[in-house]
Amino acid sequence: MPRRKVSNTLALAVLGLLQEKSMHPYEMASTLRERGKDTSFKINTGSLYDTVASLVKHGWITEVETVRDGRRPERTVYTTTEDGQSEFVQWVDELIRTPVPEYPKFMAAVSYLGALGPQRAAAALTERAGHLERQIEDARRVLAETVGTGLLPRLFMIEGEYALHALEAEHGWTVRTRDEIRDGSLTWPES
C-alpha cells in the first residue's frame, strides 16, 4: 500500500468536517472543540493552518471563497475535492479495518511499574484512577450534551462512545491492579 501524502489525524478531522459543509479554519477549530474532539485530535492554530495548506497543496481541498464577518479579518473557506473525498473514504476504511501499533506512554510506563515499589505503584495507580474518573465524567457529560439532547446525531460522536469505553476499561484495570498490589496478590520480587 503506498504511503499517504498527508497522514496526520488532524487532516482526517479537517476532511471529516468538510463532509458536513464548507468551512474556514477558525470554524473548523471551534467546531472540533465544541464537539469535544480535541481529545481525539491535537488542535492548535499553527498546526491546523499547516494541515489545511498541505491538503490544498495535495489537491484534497480547495478554496471556495473568502469572507469577512464585520470587522473580523478575511477568512478563506474550503471544501473537499473529488480526490480529497476519495482519499478520506479510503483512509477511514483503512483505519477502521486494520489495527496498527500505537505506542501509548502509559503502556511504556506500566512495563516498568516494578521500579516504583509496591507502595509508590499503588499510590500512582490510585492517583491515575482519580484522573480517569474525572475524564469519564467529562466524556459522559459531552455525550449527554450533544447526542443526549439531539444536538448531534449519535454517528457524529461515535468516537466519544469508544473513548468513554476505553477510559472505563483503563479505569477498571487500574483499580484492579492497584487492589492486587495492596492485597499482595501482585507480588514484587525480593531484592
Rank of each mutant, 00 (worst) to 15 (best):
A124V: 15
L152A: 00
V147M: 11
V92D: 05
T146K: 08
G148V: 02
G117Y: 12
F88R: 12
V110W: 13
P104G: 06
P99E: 02
V89Q: 15
A144C: 12
A124G: 11
T126I: 09
S111V: 11
Y103I: 15
D93V: 14
G148C: 00
R97T: 02
E127G: 02
Q119P: 07
G117E: 01
A139D: 06
E94D: 14
E94I: 06
V142I: 14
L116D: 09
Q90M: 13
A108Y: 03
T98W: 02
P118C: 07
Y103K: 07
A144Y: 10
I96R: 14
V142Y: 08
A108Q: 11
L151Y: 05
G114Q: 13
G114V: 13
Y112S: 15
E133F: 07
A115P: 03
E133Q: 07
P118N: 13
E145M: 05
T149L: 05
A108K: 10
R97H: 08
A139T: 06
V110K: 04
I136Y: 08
A144S: 02
T98S: 15
R141Q: 12
K105Y: 14
R140E: 08
T126Y: 00
P104Q: 04
L116G: 13
A115W: 10
D138P: 01
A109G: 01
V100L: 09
L95R: 00
D138F: 05
T146W: 07
V142K: 03
A139R: 11
L125C: 02
V142T: 15
E137C: 01
Q119M: 08
L125M: 06
I96Y: 03
G148H: 02
V92F: 11
L116R: 11
G117S: 01
M107N: 05
A124C: 08
F88T: 04
G117R: 07
V89G: 04
A121W: 03
Y103P: 07
T146F: 08
G114D: 14
T98P: 01
V92L: 14
G150L: 02
G150P: 01
L143Q: 10
L116T: 06
P118W: 04
R97N: 00
E94T: 13
L125T: 01
P104M: 02
L125I: 01
Q119F: 08
Q119H: 10
R140M: 00
G117K: 09
R141E: 09
R134C: 08
L151D: 13
R97E: 12
L151W: 03
G150T: 05
R97V: 01
T146N: 08
E133P: 02
P104D: 07
G150M: 10
Q119L: 04
E102R: 15
P101L: 15
